[in-house]
Structures are given as C-alpha cells and as structure tokens.
C-alpha cells in the first residue's frame, strides 16, 4: 500500500473515532428526538407487521422531525427481536413495534431472555378482531353447528392454527373450553398454508383475521368482538352466540425498560395524531386494518389482562413452560 494511502486511512480512522466520541458524549436529555429513531420489528420485512410500520414511517418521521428507520430482527416467533429490543439502550432511539404474542403468550411457553413485563407501553396502533371461519362448501352454518357436530363425534372435527400458542390456537382453545367440546388441532407454519389446507378440505375450521374471508371467499361464523363488524353486518358476534370473549390482532409500540417518560408522552401523542391523519386512515383502509389507538396507561392494562387470560387458556390446553 503506498504511503499516502495509508496516511489517509489513518486520518479517516482518527476522524471517525473523534466523531464517535463526541456523539457518545452528547447528553441524551436534549429534546428528543435529535437523531433518527429506529423501530425494531420482530417480523420479516414485507410481513403484515412490517407493512404497517412502513406505511406509518413517513407520517411519523414528518411529525417527529427526524428519520424513522425500520429494522427487522426476525426469528423464533418474534422472540429474537423482542430480546434485542429489551437489550437496547432505553434512550428513546430504539422502539419496539410488535404483535402481542411475544409479550402475552410466548412467555407462557418457554424461558425467554427478556422480561415481557419490562417493556414500557407507548401506544396501541390497531385492533383487528379475530373471526371463526369455514369454507363456503362447509356443512357448518353457525358456531352451534360446529359445537353440535363436535359433540356427536369428539376429536374428529379439525381446526387449523398457525402454530402452538398463536392467537388462532388460543381462540379455539377458548371456544372448546367454553363449549366443552374437543376438536383436533392441526398446526401449520403460517396462514397461507392454512388457507391451502382449508380450501383443500384438509381441515374444517380456522379462527383468524377477518381480511382472509373476502380474500379466500370463506364463510364467517362468529366475530370475537363486542360488536358486529361493519364489513359483515349479518355475522353475529361470539358473545351473541354465547361465548363472551373478545380476541383481536393488534400492534403496539413499546420502549425498552427505562425509556424516559418524556419520550413516551411525546411519542404516544405523535402516534395518536398520526393515526388520525386522513391519509393514514386511507392507508389503513387499503391494508384492511381497523385503527385502535390506546394511550400508554390503557395499553399497560390491556397487555396485563391479555397476559393473564392467555396464561389461563394455554394452561387449559396443556401448554406449559418448558
């Protein structure tokens, strides 16, 4: 290597070190955010959670006055990403955008290297109710049909899930225990595989997000929500059919343990404002998501109640911590 090149490299290295030292020494208390904020998403880019994150990205960046970076850290049902988020410096520059499973159901299945209750709630983003569905050619026209059929031949009707301990599984555990029936559980890798099995008549029942119903031309039997869904006004809620439970898929924004309160307050205000932006409302409509903002306090209570309920339901199904 010629001498001047080596000197240039050394100089560049020194300059870099200097910059890094100065940056590190800056007080974190200055008005947040003064540099890009990273949203860590524990699911792959292009997945359902990621799409929501990227749809919100420009709107949040505009309001925060800084870049929003999306980082996907994937694997092991989202727990790898959750672990990394928990380890992040609680300075408000790494936030965690996640589906609830890593906080409310995974902890009941296996030891995890993070405290699910350690995360600081910032705000809930959406709330999409789960729906029990069958194919259009299915003999079952209502939840009562399924229950009756299952009583007649216990363990013969099958339901699909996207894996043990996932919401499609937990909702069906809830139905089985309330109705005192037994269906056979067939877990699949993801909802695409389930759709193939459902349309191919390999499994009978599935409980998942409502948007699958028009996509795959399915028959909804019951909505796991307090009220009927506007898109299916004729489909009764599960409560109307005697099963008083509500289950929904939602996304929440959290900070690692110790995230300063100013950050939480400012971020949750920005989030609330963003979700009311007509452009965002339009974007959500395109993605078939129901907005469902919750403030930090409400979200904290909500996570706690979901955590306890899942613990009970999973215990009933014999899912225990390893």
């Amino acid at each position: 290597m010629p001498r001047h090149t080596r000197r240039a490299t050394l100089l560049a290295g020194a300059a870099l070190t200097a910059v890094m030292t100065v940056t590190a020494a800056m007080p974190a208390q200055a008005a947040w955010p003064e540099k890009p904020v990273t949203f860590l998403i524990p699911w792959p880019a292009g997945g359902a959670t990621d799409i929501v994150g990227r749809a919100l990205q420009p709107y949040l960046a505009e309001r925060l006055g800084t870049e929003v970076i999306i980082k996907n850290v994937v694997g092991a049902g989202g727990t790898i990403g959750a672990a990394e988020a928990a380890r992040a410096k609680p300075d408000g520059y790494t936030l965690f955008l996640t589906t609830p499973s890593v906080l409310t159901s995974m902890p009941h299945m296996r030891p995890l290297p993070y405290d699910p209750k350690g995360f600081v709630p910032i705000g809930r983003i959406n709330d999409t109710p789960m729906v029990v569905m069958v194919t259009k050619t299915s003999p079952h026209e209502s939840i009562a049909d399924i229950v009756e059929d299952a009583k007649g031949k216990p363990g013969e009707l099958t339901y699909a899930s996207t894996g043990a301990g996932t919401l499609p599984h937990i909702t069906m555990i809830s139905l089985q225990s309330s109705a005192d029936v037994e269906l056979k559980h067939v877990p699949f890798k993801g909802s695409a595989e389930v759709m193939k099995a459902l349309l191919g008549d390999v499994v009978d029942v599935f409980s998942d997000q409502a948007q699958l119903i028009p996509r795959y031309d399915l028959r909804p039997l019951g909505v796991w929500a307090k009220e009927r869904l506007p898109e299916f006004p004729d489909v009764p809620t599960m409560k109307e059919q005697g099963y008083d439970q509500a289950f929904s898929i939602w996304l929440g924004l959290f900070g690692p343990e110790g995230t300063p309160d100013e950050v939480v307050q400012k971020m949750s205000a920005v989030l609330e404002d963003t979700l009311e932006d007509p452009a965002v409302v339009e974007e959500f409509k395109k993605l078939q998501l129901a907005p469902g903002y919750m403030n930090p306090g409400e979200l904290a209570d909500f996570v706690e109640s979901e955590y306890e309920r899942n613990k009970n339901l999973m215990g009933m199904a014999g899912i225990k911590k390893q």
């Binding site: 292009g46 990621d50 996509r215 031309d217 395109k286 078939q288």
Partner: peptide, 27 residues
Amino acid sequence: ALGIPGDPSTAVMMSALIIQGIQPGVR
C-alpha cells in the same frame, strides 16, 4: 389464482399487491 403463495418470494410479492390495495385471493 388462489392468493396462496407458492414460495417465500411470492409471499413477499403478495405484500406488494396488498400495499397497492389489491387483495390477493380467489377473486
């Protein structure tokens, strides 16, 4: 034809459709 991706790559491609507000699926 069905909205069921044949491999991981087509699964991500379905996201591109959803972003456009086009619902992949039987219709």
